[in-house]
Structures are given as C-alpha cells and as structure tokens.
Write a protein that binds this DNA or RNA. Structure first.
Length: 523
DNA sequence: CACACGCCTAGAGGTTGGCG
DNA sequence: CGCCAACCTCTAGGCGTGTG
C-alpha cells in the first residue's frame, strides 16, 4: 500500500491524474515534480524564512524536544518522547492506515484545555488510547489564515488520532504583519500570532475521510485516472503545459500549431468545463461571438483567429495622446527585497527598494540612462529616494510597467522621508502604465500567449531583446543575489553581482523604451 | 390585481495576474 | 510568501412585461 501524505491530499484535490502520475514516475518524492524541476525559481532566502519562523516559534515552548529521525524510526522516536512525557515535541510524526503526518509541534495539554466539541466528535469516530491530551501546532510563515492550513491540521488530527494519540486542540502559528522590529532580539509572542482553530478543523474533519479514501483509490489504481484539464495545468510550470497533459482526454495529440484553451486569461474552471464538453480545446476554435467570453478574453480570441496582431489604432493613439512629447519622457523600473523576518526598523515582508533603473528620452530622441543600487541594508531608503528624484525629470510623463507596484514603493518612500513628499508625489501623479494598451486589448499578439507581463511583451515586440543570456534572468532571483552581495566580503564577487543586477534591471527599462517606441511607430 | 418571469444593475465576495 | 487592482461571479432587489 502506498503511503499518503498531506501534500498528496492537496495534489489530489488539484488534479487526480497529476497525483497518480507524479507518484508513479517519482514514487519516493513527497514533493510534486514541478517544484523540484525548477529550483532556480524558488527563492532561497525566502524558503529559508520558513525554517527560521519554526525556530522562533519553538522558543515559545518550554522544554521542547525535537524529533530528528525519519520514517519508521521517526514514528518510534515520537512515541518514546510522548511516553517519556516530553512537554512538547517538534517534528512529531504519526502513521496509520497508509496515512503519514508530521506535526510542527505536538504539545501536552491538561484536561481543562481540551476542546469539548472536538473530543465529542472524536469519541464517536476514533478509538484513541495513548495517555494524555495533546495540542497540534502548525507553523506558517504567512500572515493570514488560509483554508488549506486548516485542511492540513485536520489531516494531522486525523492521522494522530488514528494512530492512538489524543488530540484536544489545534492551533495555527502565523506571522503578525504589524510587528515592527526595534531591537536585535525578537519577542516571539509579539512577532507571531497563535490562533486556536479547533472549531474550523472540526468543520473540516467530517469531509476528510471521504477525500482520503478517494486519494488512496487514485494512488493504488492500476490505470491512471483521467480528469479534465484545468487552468493549473498551465501553471504547474511557468508558462508551460503540465508534463502529463497527453494522459488527459482530448489531449493525447496536442496540436503544436494551436494554443490550448487554458491560455485564455481569467478563464474559470467552470467555463473551461463547458468548453471541454463542447469539444472546444483550443483558443482558435472559440467563436468570438461566444457569450461566455469576457471583454478581456474577446480580443485574445480574435488575435488567435487572424495571422496578424489585433490592433486598435484609435485606442492606442488615445493612450499616447496623454503624453506631452515636447517634454522629456521618463522610464522607471524598481527591484525590491523582502523577507519575513524583518530588519531593525522594518515590518515582516516590507518592500525594501534596492535598485532603480531609469531612462529619460528627450524630445531630441536622445536617451539618458541612470541607475542606483543599495550596497548595504538601507534603514530609511533616503539615498534611494533622492537618487530617484535626481535621475528622472521633474516634468513630463513617467512610464512604468504595472505601475501600481512602483507607486506602492514610492508611497513607502514618502512614509519614511516625509520631507521629500512633494517631489515623490509628483512622480506618482505623472506615472502612466505602459501595460494598459496590452491589458486592455488595444494590441494583442497571439505570441503573448494570453499574458501581459513585461518580459513576454518585450521579447515578442523586440526580437533582439532576450533575457536568456543574463546571469540574473528572473525577478525572484534578484533578492537572493542582492542579499548574497551585501553579506559578502569578497570585493570581486560583490562587484560581479552588482553588475549582473544592474544588467537585469536595465534590461527591463530598455524593454519599456522599446515598447513605447513600437507603439508610437504604429501610427 | 397578484404573481411569475426575465432583464438589468449594484455591490459583495472571491479569484487572477503581475510585480518583487 | 505579500500586495494590489482588475477582473469575474453570484446574488438581491428594482423594474417592466406577460399571464391567469
């Protein structure tokens, strides 16, 4: 019998076919395939944050002991720690009837701390035997409580109860996003929120057995179960299709000339099912008059029906009409750094601007480029704000991509440097979003694949523009590299990283300038 | 006249995409 | 992982029309 973990339950929920195939092709891996295949996308310092949160959370438990072994030996270790009456156990594990669960913390509680409703439910459905009562704690580096966290705890409750432990309460430990760090020491009780979610776990428990049973059926079935294609089939790998797609109905012969329907933006699973029922599998096969289409989707469908890009020239001219071409035009791109455990003076996940790249296009068609990079952890980003004001012109349009992000950063700069408010506000007021013509469907190229991100649009419209040769070629790698740089004593390494980061950021700005000129030349 | 029905609208609530 | 805005979906209620 194959062992089912919490991750498997989640995967089963997402796609039964995927769970079966992942397990068959990679039976020893607990993690889904797509995560291990793309390690470079996963940010190192950010996943490290998760472990650091666990370490901090554990300091709230006196006399805590850590179970370090895996597999059967881990199960025995947990048992012996419980029998030895350890007050709390980190990484406690349990297994029963083919289900395996690992708890972040299993802590002893007294009879009076037990939730009566939960015990009532458990008495009716389980036959737990081992000694005292315990509470389960699940530690998350997130700042809010999500439904899958509850499912996670419900699964743990189920498995621990089935293997004989008595669970009396369930807690979530999350990050308090309003916590401001003021000293070297972090008080875990201020930094973390401990929430009793026993009620919610109790709501989840009755549905759980059915889901576990279904997942076991999937795991132990000889034939791979077939399921409909959902949107996540595109997202399992960035911009790529799920590796298992050929197992799914209607997709056994994927037509490389056509674009699968899940590339349609904002396509709900419900509508996707309706299309699948009508055997409409590709964007090219959709009737542009279809009532199910939304106003963002219609231009994408039209663009796929014709050989040329879809262009609404009057709308583009209207957009460009907002630009005063007698004034200089600025282009702006930021990179930021963010981590869960804040630096002194910061809050968890606060955006810290580390790099700005600017370009100013003068009416003479002359382009002047600047950039600014922080070389150590900034406290109030004063230099960043001042350089920004210096590097872009005090009049004229400022273009950026997805400007809400840049605006958000500038607003934070104002909070930290109120005396610069006037200049910084002027920057916000003059900003225009160069993404608008694309997200609003004024210019849609089928090669965009339904996306409107800067890299995609830039590479399609300006063929010689490619990120692939760069050392730093993905946004989430920037933070890792920068953090490595500020913590390094090796001057050569530091300089190398600085150069690579500047190359990456200026590439984005170059894209902006090219895209603007492309739109202008359409006239 | 009451009631059923469809159409429209506002807005609450949830999801998606893009930035890092 | 967070954030934000745009987007989508669903619902309640207003309104007009049709029907018994």
């Amino acid at each position: 019998m194959k062992i089912l973990s919490k991750t498997d339950i989640m995967r089963h929920q997402q796609c039964t076919t995927k769970l079966a195939l992942d397990k068959r092709e990679n039976p020893r891996k607990d993690r889904p395939l797509d995560e291990s295949k793309h390690p470079h996308i996963r940010s190192h310092y950010r996943s490290e944050g998760g472990y650091q949160i666990e370490d901090i959370a554990e300091t709230m438990f006196d006399g805590i002991q850590r179970s370090t072994l895996y597999g059967v030996r881990g199960l025995l270790e947990t048992q012996s720690l419980v029998f030895a009456k350890a007050p709390s156990i980190a990484q406690a594990s349990a297994q029963s009837k083919g289900n395996y669960a690992r708890a972040d913390i299993l802590a002893k509680i007294s009879q009076s701390q037990v939730n009566p409703e939960l015990r009532q439910y458990i008495r009716e459905n389980y036959t737990s035997t081992y000694g005292g009562n315990h509470a389960l704690y699940e530690i998350k580096s997130a700042t809010s409580i999500r439904k899958d966290f509850i499912l996670d705890l419900a699964f743990q409750t189920h498995v621990f109860e089935s293997s004989g432990y008595k669970i009396g309460r369930a807690y979530l430990i999350t990050v308090n996003k309003d916590f401001q760090r003021n000293s070297d020491q972090i008080n875990p009780h201020e930094f973390l929120n401990v929430t009793d979610v026993t009620d919610k776990v109790l709501e989840e428990l009755p549905n759980l057995s059915e889901r576990i049973e279904q997942a076991h059926l999937t795991l132990n079935q000889e034939d791979i179960p077939l399921s409909t294609i959902y949107k996540q089939c595109k997202h399992t790998q960035p911009d790529k299709i799920c590796p298992h797609i050929s197992y799914c109905p209607n997709w056994t012969n994927l037509d490389p000339e056509k674009t699968p329907i899940f590339y349609l933006p904002y396509l709900s699973t419900k509508k996707q099912d309706q299309y699948a029922e009508d055997n409409v599998m590709y964007i090219e096969d959709i009737d542009p008059e279809d009532k199910k289409l939304t106003k963002t989707q219609t231009p994408v469908v039209l663009a796929h029906k014709q050989d040329q890009p879809l262009i609404k020239l009057d709308k583009i001219q209207e957009f460009l009409g907002q630009v005063d071409t007698d004034l200089p035009i600025s282009f702006l791109d930021f990179e930021t750094f963010t981590k869960v455990i804040p630096e002194i003076g910061h809050k968890p996940y606060q955006l810290i601007p580390i790099l700005s790249s600017t370009g100013v296009l003068y009416p003479t068609n002359h382009l002047v480029r600047h950039d600014f990079i922080e070389i150590s952890m900034p406290s109030n980003s004063r230099f960043f704000a001042e350089s920004l004001i210096r590097n872009i012109e005090s009049t004229g349009t400022i273009f950026s991509w997805f400007m809400q992000f840049e605006k958000q950063v500038v607003k934070q700069l104002i909070d930290m440097n109120p005396d610069l408010e006037e200049d910084l506000n002027s920057i916000c007021d003059r900003m225009l979003d160069l993404r608008d013509p694309f997200s609003k469907g004024y210019y849609v190229d089928r090669r965009f694949e339904g996306l409107t991100k800067l890299k995609k649009v830039g590479e399609v419209l300006s063929q010689d523009l490619s990120y692939s040769g760069l050392e730093v070629d993905h946004g989430s790698l920037v933070g890792d590299k920068w953090y490595e740089m500020i913590n390094s004593d090796d001057i050569h390494k530091r300089n190398e990283i600085i150069t690579n980061l500047q190359k990456y950021c200026s590439m984005d700005t170059t894209s902006l300038v090219r895209i603007y000129q492309f739109l202008k030349d359409l006239n």
